[in-house]
Amino acid sequence: MTSKDIIKITLNLVIIYVVGGLILAAVYAKTEPVKVLKAYQEKQAALKEMMPEAKEISKMGVWKPHDKEAEYYIAKKDGKTIGYIIETYAKGYSSYIDMLIAVNDAFTVEKLNILEQHETPGLGDEVQQPYFQNQFAGKTLAHLVVVKVPTKVDIQAVSGATISSRAVTDDGVKKAVEMLKDKLSSEVKNEQAG
């Protein structure tokens, strides 16, 4: 390899890097604002859907299920708190199950919405089906229990997917509601102490 080759190779790489970098920067500048805006709108729409009667949904704080950052929100109507929405990640069979949970001010679950999961197709991913998710409406902490037989009071597991069902129920909904209860009671204590 002559020194001429070395110069050519260096020039090759420098030019490709610089031009490539410029193109990527241009595309990034164009697409990033669109992406951020759309992600924000999607989130707002998802929250609104969780509690359609709420007039105002605002962020209350951040918590860390499985070291992932998740937010929880307070929903108000005419200045009165009507409920809370919590985002959480549950450890499923083959993925983290990302979900939103709406509870009313008495900590009864109103709605569950699984946003994203990558459980086994045809088995674990059935947890996303309405027949499973709808079971959570109206459940209090005491009834967030997975059973394998038909039930009206508890949560019936998806057949063949007990691990995913348990993950959604125990690691997901139950933990989130307990976390919220904890946070709220410690806030009340702080206020009384202060």
């Binding site: 390899m1 490709i16 490539g20 990527l24 595309v27 990034y28 697409t31």
Partner: peptide, 29 residues
């Protein structure tokens, strides 16, 4: 330069893949 064609091909490929990735993240969410 023929000696570094493969690294350069890889750079070009990854550049275009990143473009697709960013476009899809914005317009085909």
């Amino acid at each position: 330069h023929p000696r570094i064609r493969l690294p350069i091909f890889m750079l070009i490929i990854s550049g275009w893949v990143t473009v697709v990735d960013m476009l899809m993240a914005a317009y085909a969410r």
